[in-house]
């Protein structure tokens, strides 16, 4: 009896060992993708990366994709990355700045290549040395927002606004640079700036109604995840007060904002996926693989909100035309 128990234990230990050491097929790459938090833009990126990898898998090399979302928990993020490393991933994809930074720290010694997505300021937060030559084992795509172009659109509709509101979350690193840019742009033009910040949906709702009560003529928000999450709850307040909301991502418009201008996150995800394929398939050197930035040329207008504010959509289109490469229109989504 005792003997059989012992044999059983040994056998199970051996299977455990064997299951850990399963050798990978030569033409399959294991990829670990980690998302930072559930968010319309970030989810869009992750879906598109996986789509590109699956599409590639049909014809060429195969990809075994491990996908996780740490839901903004720093310790869990570390455990996920450690789990990826233990599963011998050939490459890691980090979506959003905190994930990219954590992957950078975790791969310092093992040099597993890392591709990041949607890091707004990769040089500023020391993830890469420079956009042209990252210098380490990490490169990727940046959703850097050209704040100037958003304000060009604002000024195209309202040549000399007196008061403009800035709505954002102080806790969002990606908002820092564009908000500083916005302040200097507005100061140069002599426009009064009203700042309103919040750290969660209910605070953003209050901040938005505060802006309305202070009589701003337009509101600007960069690609701020907190405001994005709250957009569905604030777009009616702003639209009813006839205040257009100019934002730094098309997903805002999908949630009711008047204008989303900037990075097409679906496209960013596809480009990130393509980068992963290129690096692994063609054995590219990450240290010299430039960070990809995007020509933020697409203005996305929400036609429902546009009508509610009282703008004529055709008029808006003509006025916007000189300042962007293309104009898209959509209505508020009912499901995502």
């Amino acid at each position: 009896m005792k003997k059989s128990i012992r044999t059983g234990l040994i056998l199970s230990a051996m299977t455990l060992l064997a299951s850990c050491g399963v050798s990978k097929q030569a033409d399959t790459f294991t990829i670990g993708i980690c998302n930072y938090v559930d968010d319309a833009s970030l989810n869009q990126i992750c879906e598109n990366i996986q789509e590109v990898l699956k599409e590639e898998g049909k014809s060429g090399v195969k990809f075994d994709i491990k996908y996780q979302n740490c839901n903004a928990d720093r310790a869990v993020l570390d455990q996920i990355i450690s789990d990826f490393i233990s599963k011998d991933v050939d490459l890691m994809v980090g979506v959003a700045t905190p994930v990219a930074m954590a992957m950078q720290a975790a791969t310092e010694d093992n040099n597993i290549p890392v591709v990041f997505a949607a890091v707004s300021d990769p040089v500023g937060c020391q993830i890469v040395d420079s956009l042209a030559a990252p210098g380490g084992n990490i490169t990727g795509t940046s959703d850097y927002l050209d704040t100037n172009s958003v304000f060009n659109l604002m000024f195209a509709l309202n040549e000399n606004p007196k008061k403009v509101g800035l709505l954002y979350d102080l806790g969002q690193d990606s908002s820092k640079t564009p908000i500083a840019d916005a302040k200097s742009i507005l100061a140069k033009k002599g426009v009064e700036v009203v700042e309103a910040t919040g750290t969660n949906t209910s605070e953003i709702i209050q901040a938005a109604s505060d802006l309305v009560s202070k009589g701003v003529e337009a509101v600007f928000t960069p690609s701020d995840n907190t405001v994005m999450t709250a957009e569905l709850s604030i777009y009616e307040t702003l639209a009813n007060a006839k205040i257009p909301h100019y934002t730094g991502a098309d997903s805002f418009a999908l949630n009711g904002a008047f204008l989303g201008y900037g990075v097409d996150y679906a496209n960013l995800g596809k480009e990130t996926g393509a980068m992963v394929v290129d690096i692994l398939k063609n054995n590219k050197d990450v240290a010299t693989y430039p960070v990809k930035t995007f020509d933020n040329g697409t203005a996305t207008i929400n036609t429902e909100t546009c009508a509610k504010i009282g703008f004529d959509i055709e008029d808006v289109k003509t006025k916007f035309a000189p300042y962007c490469t293309s104009i898209k229109t959509l209505t508020t989504a009912e499901s995502f």
């Binding site: 700045t97 950078q104 720290a105």
Partner: peptide
């Protein structure tokens, strides 16, 4: 403390300690 922490980090929400 949320506001204080943001202020401590120099009005930023994340600091890189890699180097």
């Amino acid at each position: 403390l949320y506001s204080i922490n943001i202020a401590v980090m120099g009005n930023s929400s994340i600091l890189n300690l890699n180097k």
